[in-house]
């Protein structure tokens, strides 16, 4: 814990040392023989103009670059822009089925026969001969000529 006296004492000593440093600086400068130099104002003006020109060129180039990037971003973000072609996405090929006749099973769509969902299922043609075809018809019995 420092008391006020200590702080003031320290500050006073510090200022005293600062004063002696300033005196040392004056001794250094007064004792040193400064050569006669030409004015640097003209050179500073020329150099300063060069710095400004370079700075302007760099900032202009940076501005153009930023504008180009922004323009490219805006064009890419537009729906009908020249970016990825979203409108020309290829459609899935049609299955050959007439529209409006949903199928009930994959087999139906494979056979290509239009079927309804609500109606009775139509009998399929079979290769096995049915019993009804084995019943003799009158035309078939005609050669024998025997009628019961």
């Amino acid at each position: 814990m420092s008391d006020g006296y200590g702080e003031h004492g320290q500050r006073g000593r510090y200022e005293e040392e600062g004063g002696s440093v300033r005196g040392a600086f004056e001794v250094i400068l007064d004792g040193s023989r400064e050569p006669v130099f030409p004015s640097v104002t003209d050179a500073a003006v020329v150099g300063g103009r060069r710095i400004r020109r370079r700075r302007t060129a760099v900032s202009g180039a940076a501005g153009v670059l930023v504008a180009a990037v922004l323009a490219a971003g805006v064009v890419a973000a537009l729906p009908g822009g020249a970016g990825p072609d979203r409108s020309s996405v290829p459609m899935a090929p049609s299955s050959g089925r007439p529209s409006g006749s949903p199928s009930t099973s994959p087999s139906d769509s494979a056979s290509g026969s239009p079927t309804g969902t609500a109606g009775p299922v139509a009998p399929r043609p079979s290769t096995v001969p049915s019993k009804q075809t084995a019943v003799p018809t009158p035309s078939a019995l005609a050669p024998s000529g025997s009628v019961p």
């Binding site: 400064e34 050569p35 640097v40 500073a44 003006v45 150099g47 300063g48 710095i51 400004r52």
Partner: peptide
């Protein structure tokens, strides 16, 4: 160094003018 000091002064004024 006085010559280095002169260079520093010129650099300073150049940047200041910019």
């Amino acid at each position: 160094d006085w010559h280095q000091a002169q260079d520093l002064t010129q650099t300073t004024l150049m940047k200041l003018y910019a």
